[in-house]
């Protein structure tokens, strides 16, 4: 069953094309990640899905409903958490939740129970009388999520919810998302953190308004065409300069204290020895490794469109 269907979505801001023909669909019950660097067009797409922007071309449907025609119905199905913290800083946690419960007309009988549920998983109950402005980054995001969930939306759309949040809170946030998924909610989440792709059932990779990859993370990694090695050296910069010039090298990038190099074919033992000599002992270690999401993404990004 398709929850969100996007066909050839285009969006212009003046002469700037923020989305250049995006097509994909999200199945019911999955966590779907929209991964890409800042300025890739993630927010534009998410806003269009949430009826906040109109497609210049193409169509978006939610449960089969066109977002430009059935605005009211779509807004009832969706829960949306914008990128910027968008709650009222001068209202308390409880007042914010109350406000959104009333806005979505959560039945009065269920309201208290719903608030209790949300307090339970967000662990915000002890802070219910604190002003939203005085919450930590992680707590703010949990409050925003609670507000987006107040009306039990079928589909949850989250725009970079973990940006600027400490690692521990990020992990807790993802645990909450998995719990929500188990309750049957479809989740569309955008992020600039590549490692968060691991948490998604399927991802779409965004670059400059285009999708450059769409699959499960596992499949994307399987499709990676090169033999990947992690290299260590005394001086990684110099090593990068050296390997860049080799014909056999198809992909290369610095990642932390290692250099990721993708070769056309598996290098022979003799090749490695030759390289140690050629770099005057700069090359110290090498190890064959499966590609990370960064490797996959950088490769897809560099391909001609």
């Amino acid at each position: 069953m398709t929850a969100i269907n996007i066909q050839n979505f285009h969006k212009f801001y003046g002469s700037l094309e923020a989305a250049r023909g995006i097509t994909f669909s999200v199945q019911k019950g999955e966590i779907f990640g929209v991964i890409g660097p800042d300025g890739a067009g993630k927010t534009t797409l998410l806003r269009a899905i949430c009826t906040l922007l109109l497609p210049d071309q193409g169509s978006i449907t939610i449960n089969g409903l066109d977002v430009t025609k059935s605005v009211g119905e779509v807004r009832k199905i969706l829960g949306y958490m914008p990128q910027r913290f968008s709650l009222y800083p001068d209202l308390t946690v409880h007042q914010n939740l109350q406000f959104f419960a009333d806005l979505f007309e959560v039945p009065l009988k269920e309201k208290n129970e719903r608030l209790q549920q949300l307090y339970r998983f967000s662990k915000l109950e002890p802070f219910k009388n604190r002003k939203a402005a005085n919450l930590s980054g992680g707590m703010k995001q949990k409050l925003a999520l609670s507000c987006a969930l107040i009306h039990r939306p079928e589909i949850l759309v989250l725009d970079e919810p973990t940006t600027g949040v400490d690692p521990l809170s990020r992990q807790e946030f993802w645990e909450i998302l998995h719990t929500i998924q188990k309750e049957g909610t479809t989740i569309l989440i955008s992020t600039a953190y590549m490692d968060e792709a691991e948490q998604c059932d399927r991802v779409v990779l965004f670059f400059r308004g285009r999708t450059v990859g769409l699959d499960t993370l596992e499949n994307l990694k399987k499709k990676y065409p090169y033999r990947l090695y992690w290299l260590k050296a005394k001086n990684l910069r110099k090593l990068l300069d050296f390997f860049q010039t080799l014909e056999n090298v198809r992909a290369i990038q610095l990642s932390g204290d290692t250099l990721h190099v993708g070769f056309d074919t598996v290098p022979a033992a003799g090749d490695w020895q030759a390289w140690i000599k050629a770099t005057a002992g700069n090359l110290e270690e090498w190890e064959s490794r499966p590609p990370s999401i960064e490797d996959v993404f950088l490769d897809l990004m560099r391909r001609p469109q």
Binding site: T51, G72, R75, K76, L78, P82, S86, P89, F100, L103
Partner: peptide, 13 residues
Amino acid sequence: ETGTLEQILVSPI
């Protein structure tokens, strides 16, 4: 300006 409008707009209000 503060972005709260974005959050209100996605409600059925």
